[in-house]
Design a protein around this nucleic acid. Structure first.
Lengths: 218, 218
DNA sequence: TAGATTGTTAATCGATTAACAATC
DNA sequence: TAGATTGTTAATCGATTAACAATC
C-alpha cells in the first residue's frame, strides 16, 4: 500500500529548486509561532506570485484551507519529507583548501542532516589534521572509506584543473550525487546527479548586471 | 557612434547564467592551443545542445565561420567584455566566519577581477585581524569605507538570522549588487540585484535527487 | 565540388500567470 | 451571509529544440 502518492509524480525542476526556499521560510514562521500562511504571504516573503506558490505546493501532499492558507507545521513536515531533510546524509569533501575547510567547520550542515564524514586531499602534509570535527585523509583512502561510511554526496572543492578527475574518482567509488564548487563543468554518467554551486559564476552574473546598469545610466 | 550593438539588446536570463560556463571553457581551450570550436564541440563539453549554443552566442558580438566554428580567442574576448571580466570590481564581505574568511583567502577572485577590499564583522575581537590580504573592520565603518573604496558588490556571509539586516545596511550605503550566501531570502529594492549562491539549498536539491533514485530502485 | 557548420526562423515544449468555481 | 483563499484549468509567455537555406 502506498500512502504518499506524491512521491511518484514528477516534480518540475524549477519547483524543486524553490522547495528549499519554502522550507527555510516556513520553518522560520513556525518557530516564530505563526500557525497559518496564505500563498500570498509566502509569495511576498520570497518574491514570487501567489499563483506560483499554489502551483508549487499542489505537488506536495497537503491541502490548504480557504481563508486561512497552509498550516506552517504541516507544510514544514511535508517539505522536509520531500527534500529528505529528516534523513541523515553522509557527505565527503574532496579538497582541504580554504573552501573545503570552511565547509567542514561550518556547523549548519550537520544540523540540517548532512554529516560531513571526511576531507580528502592530495597534499600529504595535511593528512591527519582536523578541521572542526572532520579529519583530512589521503585520496588513496577514498575507496576504502567509501565502503566504510556509506557516502551519499561528494563535494568537489578542488582547483578547477582537478575537478574532472575528482568527479571520476567519486563516480568510481559509487557516489551518486555531487556538489561541484569548482569553476569548471564536470561530465559524469547519466545516473549521477551534479549540482553546481559556483560562487565565481554568481559574481560574474552580478558583474553583468552592474554593466547593464551603468549602460542605462548613460 | 555605437560600435557594440549587442550591449543594448536584452539577453535572456538563462543565457546570462550560461555565459560564465562558456567563458571558463573557451578560456581553457584557448590556453590549450585550440583555435576553433564548433557549437557541437562546446555543447558536448558543457552538456548542452549545439542549437542552444548557437542561439546563445547569437547574442554576442561575433560571427562563427562555416566548417570551422568560433574562434576561441575572439569568443573569449567578447564573453569577457559582456561579463565585465576586464573591469576590476570592488567587493566587500560581510561576516568574517569560516565562509567569509575562506573567500577572503581564496586567490581566484582577485585573479578574475574581483578585488576583495575588506571583511566586516560585528565581533569586536576579530577587528584588525587579516585573512589573506584582507582586513576585518567594524560594521560601524561600513558607511565610511563605502565612500573610500567604491564598493560594487557586497557578499552576505553571515548567519541567516542577520542576513536581512545586513542586506539593508548594504543597500543603505549604496551597494547595487549583492551575493547572498545566507540560507535566507533577502528583500531589497528593485534597483538592487541579488544573486543567491546557497550551498545548503544545492545540497537539499541533491538530497531530493537521491530520494527519487531510491524510490525508483524499489 | 561536396560536406560541414553557421545564423535564423518556426515548432515544440514547458513554466508562469491569470482566472474562476469551489469552499471554508 | 459575505468575503477571502484555495485548487485547478486555461491562457500566456518564454526557452529550447528542430529544421534548413546560406556559406565557407
Amino acid at each position: 500500500m502506498c500512502l504518499s502518492m506524491q512521491s511518484t509524480d514528477q516534480i518540475p525542476h524549477p519547483v524543486i529548486r524553490r522547495l528549499p526556499k519554502y522550507l527555510v521560510h516556513v520553518q522560520e514562521l513556525r518557530e516564530d509561532g505563526v500557525e497559518w500562511a496564505s500563498s500570498q504571504d509566502i509569495a511576498d516573503a520570497l518574491g514570487l506570485t501567489s499563483s506560483t506558490v499554489r502551483q508549487d505546493l499542489s505537488h506536495m501532499d497537503l491541502r490548504g484551507i480557504s481563508k486561512k492558507g497552509y498550516e506552517t507545521s504541516q507544510l514544514e513536515a511535508v517539505l522536509r519529507q520531500v527534500l529528505g531533510a529528516d534523513i541523515m546524509h553522509h557527505v565527503v569533501i574532496i579538497g582541504a583548501g580554504h573552501l573545503g575547510r570552511a565547509l567542514a567547520e561550518h556547523g549548519a550542515f550537520a544540523r540540517r542532516g548532512f554529516d560531513i564524514g571526511a576531507l580528502f586531499d592530495q597534499d600529504e602534509s595535511l593528512i591527519g589534521k582536523s578541521y572542526g570535527a572532520v579529519q583530512v585523509m589521503s585520496m588513496d583512502e577514498l575507496a576504502t572509506q567509501a565502503d566504510k561510511m556509506q557516502i551519499d554526496i561528494g563535494i568537489i572543492a578542488v582547483p578547477s584543473a582537478a575537478a574532472q578527475e575528482v568527479a571520476e574518482q567519486l563516480v568510481a567509488v559509487g557516489v551518486k550525487a555531487i556538489l561541484n564548487l569548482a569553476y569548471k563543468h564536470v561530465k559524469v554518467p547519466a545516473h549521477v546527479t551534479v549540482v553546481d554551486a559556483r560562487i565565481m559564476e554568481s559574481l560574474q552574473e552580478l558583474a553583468y548586471a552592474l554593466g547593464k546598469k551603468s549602460d542605462l545610466e548613460k
